[in-house]
Amino acid sequence: MSNNNNDGASAVTSAGTVHSEAGHGSLVVEDLQAWYGRFRAVANLSLTITPRAVTAIIGPSGCGKSTFLRCINRMHEVARGARAAGKVLLDGDDVYAPDADPVQVRRHIGMVFQKPNPFPMMSVYDNVVAGLKLAGVKNRAMLDEVAERSLRRAALWDEVNDKLNNSGAALSGGQQQRLCIARALAMEPQVLLMDEPCSALDPVATSKIEDLIRELRQNYTIVIVTHNMQQAARVSDHTAFLLLDEDRAGRLVEYGPTSQLFTNPQDRRTEDYITGRFG
C-alpha cells in the first residue's frame, strides 16, 4: 500500500467538482447516523470525499463534527454506549460491513487528535514506530527506515533526529503534534483524519501544521475538523458545513469547494455562519 509517491497522478481535483476516484483513498459516506446511548448526534449524513485533497468539516460547537469524523475510522464506537449505522466506503469497501474488523479499518484510516498525545513512556523513535512494532514488525532496519521517512514527511526529522531516544513527552506542543502525525503516517494509511489538530497549539506551531497539511495532501486523503473558519479556508479544497437540526442531531447543510462555500454559499444558514452572524 505504498504507492503514495506518484505525485503526477494525484493532481488536486479542480475546484468546482466533487467526485470520487477509486483506489486512492476515496471515501463515500452514505446515510451515516451516530448515537450516544439514545441521543442521536449525527443524522443521515451522506457525502463523497475527494481523494488526495483536504476536506474541512466546519460548524458550531456540538454540531457533531468530531462524532462524524470518528465514525469514519470506527473510533466513535470506542466510547461507552456509542454506536453508528450507515455506510462508509473506503475505495469501495464498507468499513461498517458485518465482517469488517475495526482494528484493520484504523490501520487504513489514521487519526490525529485534538490534544497532542504521544505515548509518555516511549521515546520519540518508539512513538513513531509504535503501530508497526506492536503489530509485530521486528526488522530493525525497516523500522529505522519507516521512522526516518515518517518523521521527514511530518516535517519533524530535522528537529528531532538527534533526540530520537528522548521521551516524546519532552518535545514542544507543536512538535508533539507533528510526532503524532508521523506516528499515524508510519502505518501508511490512505486517509488521515484530523480532529482539530491545532486547537491546543500557538499560532506559529499552527502555521507549521497547516503547511504540513498542504504538503501531505499530495499523498493522502485528509479530513480535518476545525473550529477555525480561517483555517478551513487556508488549508482545505472542499468544505462541509454541519449544523444541529431541530432534533439536536448534526446534519450536513452544505458541501462544496471551499472557495465557493466561503464566497458564494448556496444556503442561507451557511452564509449566516461564515459571516459570523451566529456560532
Binding site: V78, H108, F113, L134, R183
Partner: peptide, 10 residues
C-alpha cells in the same frame, strides 16, 4: 492515550 493506540489500529 488509549484513543491514540486504538487509532493506530492496535
Amino acid at each position: 492515550y488509549r484513543e491514540a493506540a486504538l487509532g493506530l489500529g492496535l
